[in-house]
Design a protein around this nucleic acid. Structure first.
Lengths: 144, 144
DNA sequence: CGCAATTGGTGGGTAAAAGTGGGTTTTTGT
DNA sequence: ACAAAAACCCACTTTTACCCACCAATTGCG
């Protein structure tokens, strides 16, 4: 299970060093794609396959689902980590997520999210700003 | 059950000595994560697992629930206490909670909260300042 | 009641591993 | 055939994990 946030810095060639503690679990073959919230998703290649299959099983006439298909499957790229455990982020994906130097890698259990640092801060701020956190209905009565 | 508040001091490397009386209950494997109120949460590793599982079962497209996932699971880190019973707080988590030297460790039954001392005082002050405490609806008619 | 011994807390030092930045070669596309 | 980009490799710097030594505090025993 992937956990934890790491502040990474992308070098001028667009390479990102994956933290050593996660290399083993990621293996060398990974899939990087786009998420509607403006970040990128990073999956170990085997974990991605069933997700893609599920997406493509949806109707391609429905506006909602075809939009998701275009984003998630359309942007998906197979990438291999280099010998130093770095992955090369293509210009297209870099542009999509507005990635420059400072990148946040956020563990989300089965996968990671990659955020431009500023975008991450912004989305974090909006969550905490309200003071009160509205709990999703499914978590009614749930406490930490 | 964890009870009591302790005033701890973090050393320059970001290490925190857990009070000896709580070491046995915490075991050596713990999980440290972020709380929307600006403090950190410290769980014995086994106690954390079900909470994370519950969070990750929510939709990752919904803004509300994905925000919580990013915060709670994203910031979560597996940590082992060192031979002297200290835990190392990563720079990311230190920054999140504004931790410097003075830290308050607050027992909360199943887990601890960690506060920057100033933030702790502030939140305590705002609770007591109001004079009257509004009781949450669930505690209607409850008295201490 | 005081001293000694043990336990808890604190602060570095060091060796190994991870991260970083190029330089060079190979491939690809035009 | 040439230019641009990607893959590969190597060397340097920084960080981390582990260990040890010291100081303080508390407890137990003479």
């Amino acid at each position: 299970m992937f956990r934890g946030t790491t502040n990474l810095s992308m070098d001028v060639k667009g390479r990102l060093a994956v933290p050593a503690k996660h290399r083993e679990a990621l293996q060398t073959k990974v899939v990087l794609t786009a998420h509607p919230h403006g970040c990128l998703l990073l999956y170990p290649q085997p974990a991605w396959e069933p997700i893609e299959a599920k997406m493509m099983a949806l109707s391609s006439f429905d506006k909602q689902s075809s939009g998701l298909q275009r984003l998630l499957v359309g942007y998906a790229e197979d990438i291999e980590l280099d010998s130093a455990g770095r992955l090369l982020v293509s210009p297209t994906l870099r542009e999509f997520a507005g990635l420059e130097k400072e990148v946040m890698l956020v563990g989300q259990g089965s996968h990671f999210e990659m955020w431009h640092l500023e975008a991450w801060r912004k989305q974090l701020g909006s969550l905490m700003a309200g003071g009160d956190i509205e709990m999703p209905a499914e978590l009614e009565g749930f406490s930490l």
